[in-house]
Design a protein around this nucleic acid. Sequence first.
DNA 1: CGACGTGGAGACAACGTTGTCGGAACTGTG
DNA 2: CACAGTTCCGACAACGTTGTCTCCACGTCG
Lengths: 352, 352
Amino acid sequence: MSDATDHAAHVQTVPARRRRPTMRDVAQRADVSLKTVSRVVNDEPGVSTALAVRVRRAIDELGFHPHAGARLLRTDGRTSAIALLLEDVANPFSAAVQRAVENEARERGVVVFSASIDEDPARERALAREFGARRVDGLLLAPAGDDQSYLADELPSGTAVVCVDREANGIAVDSVITTNALGAAEGVRHLAAAGHRRIAFLGDRRSIRTADQRYAGYRDAIASLGLPLDPGLVVHDLRESADADGAVTALLARPDPPTALFTAQNLITIGAVRALRRLGAEWSVALVGFDDVLLADLLSPGITVVAQDPAAIGRTAANLLFARIAGDTSPPGVRLVPTTLIRRGSGEIQSG
Amino acid sequence: MSDATDHAAHVQTVPARRRRPTMRDVAQRADVSLKTVSRVVNDEPGVSTALAVRVRRAIDELGFHPHAGARLLRTDGRTSAIALLLEDVANPFSAAVQRAVENEARERGVVVFSASIDEDPARERALAREFGARRVDGLLLAPAGDDQSYLADELPSGTAVVCVDREANGIAVDSVITTNALGAAEGVRHLAAAGHRRIAFLGDRRSIRTADQRYAGYRDAIASLGLPLDPGLVVHDLRESADADGAVTALLARPDPPTALFTAQNLITIGAVRALRRLGAEWSVALVGFDDVLLADLLSPGITVVAQDPAAIGRTAANLLFARIAGDTSPPGVRLVPTTLIRRGSGEIQSG
DNA sequence: CGACGTGGAGACAACGTTGTCGGAACTGTG
DNA sequence: CACAGTTCCGACAACGTTGTCTCCACGTCG
């Protein structure tokens, strides 16, 4: 058994803290001027090979590392860093977006600061300020609050901003969002096509713009299908899996229960599935969820979903941001990323 | 339908790029000295209220934002930033670790840079250098390569380092890791307790230390149970879900197939489940997976797993790192985070 | 042989901030 | 009124780096 392998051999201890060597130290050791060291470090021309070698040896011997902050100060250029503010990096959707952004950033040698907002507008603003002070080149933001006009105050002018997953409000910036209303409507119509007339809606807080758009899609689809909109079948404000579980349990206990469920967010979908299982109703009540879930295909029945494309969202947003950083000044707009209906069984259960 | 809501009203355009205001500009406008502005910004004593008000108004009018880089340069203090280098932020395990680290960092007003290494040692080193140049206070690293002695060269002296999920090699730093061998052994013994004698092992690349430790646990358990170690039942090098699917298919096609599977990583577990389903063997072949999977409880049968505790790992590692940053110089060591066996059905299928 | 590039190298200032110190304007005391 | 003690404020230097300019030692060409 070897959970903690022995690594006493070849250990190189981290040197004790001391003043970090600077270019001046290198210059002294190599017996050249400060500027010559700078030239070598930046691969500027105009240094003879002999000197360059001497300088490089001094750099190695001293363990010199250029100070990115000082360089930035002098050049006042880009920091080659962007900030990514998402709802919660642990949510699979956010994680996929983050990964896509990182891929784009990597290609450009840009690093990514990331942080979770947790649906807290105050935290959203504080984080924006924080990263603004660090002079990020751009900010990718999934807004939690309903007004982002504060960005004009908190961000140094010149900081590019692109919103992901949700639109910004009160400020003119690009947004990249899922076709929430269209996708939700498609999911609802899919259920109606299987004969369902009593389709429940289970959603997150309506203050979340995407949640509201998905509800709008539900409402529109119900109306265009000529079905009555029964407020008793609509539940908002579900924040976590367990809330959805409870809501489904309550809905199915009604005298006139729904025959189909539309769950408007991934954690809600999971809670609903749990409830249906417990009630033994997974094969009698139809279900379509918004946003895909890992393993959804392996359940019985498989979960039919309106899948988002987080990778496309992240990629598109990152590209827009880098274009802005590079100087693109075209009028900002909204990019829509389409959804895909994936049939797996739960959404094809017939009514009655 | 309203996926793109109209936000033409109340739009406040981002000002065009211009020189960002500095303290000097503020000083000029408020008709005070540069230093007085500095005092106000940092809430230092020794400024009359009247002046402070004037300065603050000037700051607002100009939209001044302190330059974190310049401040750092002067104080040569902490950057209040740490870097988090994980295998892949999109993997649920990594995402959970990241989230836990972020929680700890948030309490301390520290921001987190994060990046994915993707099992590429060269990238690991490049990222370490990158963040070192940005003078992060500390580095949280899930090493991909098998030697981290390069850290002594790439990192400015004084940068704290703690390894997560995997131990470092060639350098004396703290590590926080799961009890991989013990956990794997427990999973295997659990299968043996259900009467299985032919238990297959499916694992990732052995170059990954955790993968190797889990295999060691498997081997030790098999030996201590007095079972023969059949090399034909051991498959390494499974990199993704599909690889595992193929491996299981091949194993079960053998004349003497295993009656139980131990899958040593979450994606491998998923691939194995897919294969079992396709072969209709999910109720006849037992399965225990290492690392938990979302929705594992809703499958039929539920997937029995040896669950890791990524939140505890992240929390512990972050706390260790902050202690080091604060000056803790006690000898570095390895912290082990225990696993938990969660019985859900697939691991309790009896042999024969 | 003199004027002229040309390429290598260094001196100096500047980026935006903060620490140190010194000075001016008050206050209260003998 | 002289004096010390406060309180408030500003001049200056420094942090580590890079842009600009200058200088010097070459060779080269007319």
